[in-house]
């Protein structure tokens, strides 16, 4: 491999123009620059000087023709800045805290964490469960689900911001050996009036998933007891799972069932509390 080259992008246009197969956008650096990084390219295009870190309220027009309010979070916003923001929803702050190191949270960005699609991602399950959207430098806005499903199509695009719905109920849980270890499982369950339940998962050595079928069962109240959730995850073939150094497949399947049950109940409780 040739020596690594760093280019500091001075504008979005320049950053996009520089992007090719042998380069990647460099944001916080906590994944790309670290030992064990899965990113293996020669050219790094730093987007820090683009200052894509604003957090504000924004309205988006949706299919129903109405304007819905979202929290707009710049792709360069750090985990810590989201925690310190008064408008970022608590469920996303919880996910930011999954990164245990404050120093790392000062560096890691929402855009970087999403774009890398890591199977131990801190934020992806939460953002997926909350039906978040993202916007590319082209101005195009898509659902995060689509970014995940059609990643080959979108991966070279520069994400400039995210739209997060603060009215969605989301509960998330992360399992790891120690707080600073890679996550074995990060699972989120979300519920919104418009879309009903949504279950998402980052599973180490496997991938990132959304389970629409399971959500449909939950919406129809066909999955509501602990046993039903345990059985579902015991037998489902919706994802790859294997014995590895993070635990046996049986253990992980069990945890998924228990956790999905608990998170669903937590979301239901939130919903009930709001109703009151």
């Amino acid at each position: 491999m040739e020596e690594k080259k760093l280019i500091i992008a001075k504008s979005i246009t320049q950053a996009v123009k520089l992007k090719d197969k042998d380069s990647t956008f460099l944001s916080g650096g906590t994944e790309i620059n670290r030992l064990g990084s899965l990113v293996n390219v020669n050219n790094l295009i730093s987007i820090k000087k683009l200052f894509l870190n604003e957090i504000s309220l924004a309205k988006l027009e949706e299919k129903d023709g109405k304007h819905h309010e979202y929290v707009k979070i710049g792709a360069g916003a750090t985990f810590q800045s989201m925690i310190e923001s008064e408008i970022v929803p608590d469920y996303l702050k919880t996910a930011c805290y999954f990164m245990s190191s404050r120093t790392k949270r000062n560096m890691a960005t929402i855009g970087g964490n999403v774009a890398l699609l890591r199977d131990d991602s801190y934020l992806l399950p939460t953002l997926l469960a909350s039906d978040s959207k993202l916007e590319f430098s082209t101005g195009r806005i898509i659902n995060l689900d689509n970014y995940l499903i059609d990643n080959d199509k979108y991966k070279d695009n520069l994400i400039v911001c995210f739209y997060v719905n603060s009215k969605t109920f989301v509960s998330s849980k992360r399992y790891s050996n120690t707080a600073a270890s890679h996550a074995v499982i990060t699972m989120s369950v979300g519920w919104s009036r418009k879309n009903g339940f949504k279950v998402s998962l980052a599973l180490k050595n496997s991938g990132v998933y959304v389970f629409p079928e399971l959500a449909e069962f939950m919406d129809a109240n066909l999955r509501s007891t602990e046993t039903e959730f345990l059985n579902h995850f015991k037998s489902t073939k919706d994802f790859r799972i294997k014995d590895d150094m993070y635990g046996s497949a049986d253990y992980k399947r069990y945890l998924l069932g228990i956790t999905c049950f608990d998170l669903t109940n937590a979301v239901k409780t939130m919903r009930e509390e709001v109703k009151k």
């Binding site: 670290r34 064990g36 000062n106």
Partner: peptide, 26 residues
Amino acid sequence: GEGFCGSDTVLLNGIPVYANLVLAGE
């Protein structure tokens, strides 16, 4: 440069960061 132990901590523009995870050009 794993961003774990913190022996490389510095303040960059007043914020603690791991110096191993920042590139000089930045």
